[in-house]
């Protein structure tokens, strides 16, 4: 949906030109939710990987071997 349909205008009288004007709050809410979800998903994925890695090395000797 175009908010501008011609450039035959006096630019001094033109303000915002981006599409879907009027839906700014909805767009902000969507991005806000995605941002929070991103953190939750990232932390959950990082913790899962950490648990898997720790499970691979059951003993002190395992780690010692790998370090050598």
């Amino acid at each position: 949906m175009a908010d501008i349909d011609t450039w035959a205008v006096d630019l001094a009288e033109v303000g915002a030109v981006y599409p879907f004007q009027g839906s700014e709050v909805i767009m902000v809410v969507i991005v806000m939710v995605l941002w929070v979800v991103w953190h939750v998903a990232q932390i959950s994925s990082e913790q899962r990987k950490e648990r898997e890695e720790v499970a691979r090395f059951n003993s002190r000797d395992d780690i010692k071997d790998k370090l050598e």
Partner: peptide, 11 residues
């Protein structure tokens, strides 16, 4: 963040 001046705005 929803202010018109935060988007493409010729003013």
């Amino acid at each position: 963040p929803w202010s018109p001046t935060m988007g493409t705005n010729l003013e």
